[in-house]
């Protein structure tokens, strides 16, 4: 976790492509070296079951033999574990950058996986630390997935990068006879299956809400949304995760001129 900073100070290494490097130089950002943050941990195996209901679905029918109440709710232990792992890895990367006297980290790549089984989590972040020669030391190192001319465009249009971000929300659906009745097609066509709609909505709106809380006063752009569903016997999970760059607008946006339209003759 403590990077070896004793290397030759005049040599930089970076994950930047040549155009990205050229853009950094023209923005007066000097690449310092590749920095990384890593976290590997265990997720408690029973935490997945500690959900709490957001909405109950009483039995919709008199004819059913069993009258069971289904519900949809959040299971946030897993989400907290993953978001915590991401935050720790990010902090470590920024710490490494700060040690080098860098102002920011560009071109951040995020890799997340289960290294051994479903009960472990692994987060690896890496990017190129950059510094603005002559500027004073920052209180907080910024980070972004962007690099090169895209980053330059961002700044030109009035935004500045703040941080890479990750949010996640898992909704749990416990089937009751409402679900069994409408969801199994026994009743007929055309019934709204509320538990399914609600589970999908809860996962997505939860992830967006977490991202909003995280991004007070700033915007989360370039979001990629991943939704994962697991169906089990009587219980299903819908997980939604968001990844993106937090950016802050510091100027009113200057309207961009109309783009030049071209047809490429390369096939």
């Amino acid at each position: 976790m403590t990077p070896d900073t004793a290397g030759a100070p005049n040599i930089f290494d970076s994950g930047l492509t040549t155009p990205d490097f050229a853009a950094c130089i023209s923005m007066n950002l000097q690449p310092v070296r590749l920095v990384q943050g890593y976290y590997c941990g265990q997720i408690s195996s029973w935490s997945a079951y500690s959900g709490y209901p957001v909405r109950n679905y009483p039995c919709a029918c008199a004819e059913m033999d069993m009258h069971t109440t289904g519900w949809v709710g959040r299971v946030d232990d897993l989400d907290r574990a993953w978001m915590g792992a991401h935050q720790t890895a990010l902090d470590r990367m920024l710490q490494e950058a700060a040690t080098l006297g860098a102002h920011g980290v560009v071109g951040v790549t995020t890799e997340m996986s289960h290294p051994t089984n479903a009960n472990s989590c692994e987060v690896h972040l890496y990017g190129t630390a950059v510094l603005s020669p002559g500027a004073r030391a920052p209180q907080q190192v910024w980070s972004t997935q962007l690099a090169g001319h895209k980053l330059a465009k961002l700044v030109e249009t009035g935004y500045v990068p703040s941080s890479v971000a990750y949010s996640r929300c898992t909704a749990m659906l416990v089937e009751g006879c409402n679900m069994e009745y409408y969801g199994s097609g026994r009743c007929g066509t055309g019934y709204i299956i509320n538990p399914i709609q609600d589970a999908h909505s809860l996962a997505r709106s939860g992830a967006i809400e977490v991202a909003r809380q995280m991004s007070q006063g700033v915007s989360l752009y370039g979001v990629s949304m991943e939704v994962h569903e697991t169906e089990g016997r009587g219980t299903s999970y819908v997980t939604c995760s968001l990844r993106g760059s937090l950016v802050r607008r510091v100027r009113a946006t200057l309207p961009l001129g109309p783009p030049v339209t071209t047809v490429s003759l390369a096939s």
Binding site: T17, P19, A23, G148, H149, K150, T262, L265
Partner: peptide
């Protein structure tokens, strides 16, 4: 006649 360009797209 096409203009030759180099784009910064990745």
């Amino acid at each position: 006649r096409p203009t030759t360009i180099i784009s910064f797209d990745n």
